[in-house]
Simulated assay, not measured.
Amino acid sequence: MTSSSKTIVLSAVIAALLSGAAFASGAAPAPNASNDAQLAASAGVQPGIYTAAELQAIIDAKRDNDSRTANYFISGANRANPAQNTDSVGLEQLARAAGVQPGQYTQAELVGLIEAQKENDAVRVEYWLSHANRNTPDASANPGKIQLAKTLGVNPDDYSLSELVLMQSSISD
């Protein structure tokens, strides 16, 4: 798999993970009969249950022989209600897939860690495990980060700039 293919797959997984937050209320996705039925058939799952992003993530995971990621979406764990607690079922499952303790990493960090592990990239694995991604100047030194956090209604000190950008892109989609 080429680097650009891996980037596309990672983007699809991240989009699917983030789109799962939109369904945290438990609402079922609205089916688009023909497209969803074709995607569901390709994914080997029942049509009308999953979003297009979830179906694509399942297809990609199965193609890559990644049963943990496929099961994550098939089980609906990506739709776990984050308001239940900080260790939602989905985050716990991602943490187990990454081989780390639940509750220590954000969803974005876990996805990055899992991708680095798949690519056997020891430098990136250590980057995520050490929380080096969190070693950024405080928010007061980055007015753009403050502004972005305010538009999202969150505390800029609680998130990295990349996490805020991911949050914003998931809202824009």
Rank of each mutant, 00 (worst) to 15 (best):
L18S: 09
S19W: 00
G20C: 06
G20D: 13
G20F: 07
A22K: 13
A22T: 09
A24N: 09
A24P: 03
S25T: 04
G26F: 07
A27K: 13
A27Q: 13
P29Q: 09
A30V: 10
P31Y: 13
P31F: 10
P31L: 03
N32V: 14
A33C: 07
S34K: 11
N35D: 14
N35V: 14
A37S: 15
A37Q: 13
Q38V: 10
L39I: 01
A40K: 04
A40G: 12
A41K: 15
A43H: 04
V45A: 12
V45E: 11
I49Y: 02
I49F: 01
Y50D: 08
Y50G: 04
A52H: 15
A52F: 02
L55S: 04
L55F: 08
I58T: 03
I58Q: 01
I58E: 01
I59A: 03
A61S: 15
R63G: 13
R63F: 15
R63V: 14
R63L: 07
D64Y: 06
D64P: 00
N65G: 07
N65R: 06
N65K: 12
N65S: 14
D66V: 02
S67Q: 12
S67F: 06
T69F: 12
T69I: 14
A70W: 04
A70R: 08
N71G: 14
Y72N: 03
Y72M: 12
F73C: 03
I74S: 00
S75A: 15
S75G: 13
S75Q: 03
G76E: 01
A77K: 08
N78D: 10
A80Y: 00
A83R: 12
A83F: 10
Q84D: 14
N85T: 11
D87T: 15
D87S: 15
V89S: 11
L91I: 12
Q93M: 13
Q93H: 08
Q93A: 13
L94Q: 02
A95R: 06
A95E: 12
R96F: 09
R96I: 10
G99W: 01
G99R: 05
V100G: 08
P102R: 03
P102K: 04
G103R: 08
Q104S: 10
Q104C: 06
Q104M: 11
A108I: 04
L110V: 00
V111N: 08
L113W: 01
L113S: 01
I114Q: 04
E115W: 10
Q117C: 02
K118L: 11
E119P: 00
E119D: 08
N120D: 09
D121N: 15
R124I: 02
R124P: 00
R124M: 11
E126T: 08
E126C: 05
Y127Q: 10
W128Y: 15
S130E: 07
H131K: 02
H131C: 07
A132Q: 09
A132S: 15
R134V: 02
R134N: 08
R134L: 06
R134S: 09
T136A: 15
T136N: 05
D138H: 10
A139R: 05
A139W: 05
A139I: 01
P143K: 00
K145Y: 00
K145M: 12
K145T: 02
I146T: 11
Q147L: 13
Q147D: 11
Q147V: 01
